[in-house]
């Protein structure tokens, strides 16, 4: 059983790991991009990116100054048996303390007063999603996404008769329109179906899938490769200044929809694709991956 004090410490470590270090799959994809690019500007950009990742890790500093609006996805195993943890308050406390200690940039602003709360918490902040599963573990994912790429999110409420060819075209047009402002090379997340909210949630959550992982749905898997290939043929390139790596991956998820609607959401993730996961077992041991 994990006690609240340890849980708080673990969550702070989680926030720190996500803010300071990029996952291995993302680093590997960026290195591959550097080797692929030919032009001086694309190479200079990817070189800056790779240097920056190394500096952040060595100096223990946030990779990007936009340390995101804190977002947690909490997955509670039905056999974890420890649901007395006061999640909301501990996660908020961890955010407040991490903001000061790491430090993170205070990004949380009250839209009514236009005032920055100063500690990244406030009404509905941090954002927390809860899910249940059949495991005996508790997992907490921290997903700090910057506003540059978040502002390029799109939601299209299509008519259900829209052919797949047109859906692909809408997604591609969105990407060509928005990629340069999303700090490419990007990861593209697509949410197909559900309600408007589901589509957006799935699109954003799809960004968390490791680069190189295969979609379990064969139809979506081939659509992912096709879209990735087409995006990279448009030549937008790193930071929108030309090149062959505009996107590192396309990840699609789906949900059943209302018979009368077809929402399609597109979420963009900048190259600084930060994510980390805390896994707590029944006996209270935990790891951060």
């Amino acid at each position: 059983m994990i006690v609240e004090e340890d849980f708080l410490k673990a969550v702070k470590n989680l926030i720190s790991k996500a803010s300071l270090e990029l996952p291995e799959d993302v680093i590997a994809a960026l290195k591959k991009a550097y080797e692929l690019e030919k032009t001086p500007s694309a190479r200079a950009i990817l070189n800056s990116i790779l240097n920056n990742i190394q500096l952040a890790k060595t100096l223990r500093r946030p990779i990007c100054q936009d340390t995101g609006l804190p977002l947690f996805i909490v997955e509670i195993g039905r056999n974890f048996n420890n649901c007395r943890i006061d999640y909301e308050n501990i996660l908020a406390k961890a955010v407040k303390e991490a903001t000061k200690e790491i430090p993170l940039r205070p990004n949380c602003v009250d839209p009514l007063t236009d005032l920055n709360t100063g500690d990244n918490t406030g009404r509905m902040a941090p954002i927390i999603f809860y899910n249940f599963n059949d495991s005996d573990r508790l997992t907490v994912t921290y997903f700090p996404k910057g506003a540059g790429s978040e502002n390029q999110t799109g939601l299209y409420m299509l008519t259900p008769s829209t052919p797949i060819k047109n859906i692909k075209k809408i997604i591609l047009t969105h990407i060509v329109e928005k990629a340069a402002l999303s700090c490419p090379p990007v990861i593209v997340g697509v949410g197909l179906g559900g309600g408007a909210d589901t589509a957006l949630y799935l699109a954003k959550k799809a960004l968390l899938r490791p680069i190189g992982s295969k979609n379990q749905e064969p139809l979506l898997s081939s659509m992912e490769s096709e879209l990735l290939d087409l995006i990279n043929k448009t030549g937008i390139g790193p930071m929108g200044l030309g090149g062959s790596t505009t996107a590192l991956a396309v990840h699609i998820d789906y949900a059943c929809r209302h018979t009368a609607s077809l929402p399609v959401a597109v979420s963009m993730q900048c190259w600084a694709a930060r994510r980390a996961q805390l896994v707590v077992s029944r006996n209270g041991d935990y790891t951060i991956i």
Binding site: I49, I63, M239, L241, C270, A272
Partner: peptide
């Protein structure tokens, strides 16, 4: 002029 987006630590150096 464009500075590489996201390269915040590099800029700080």
């Amino acid at each position: 002029a464009s500075f590489t987006g996201g390269a915040g630590v590099l800029a700080a150096q």
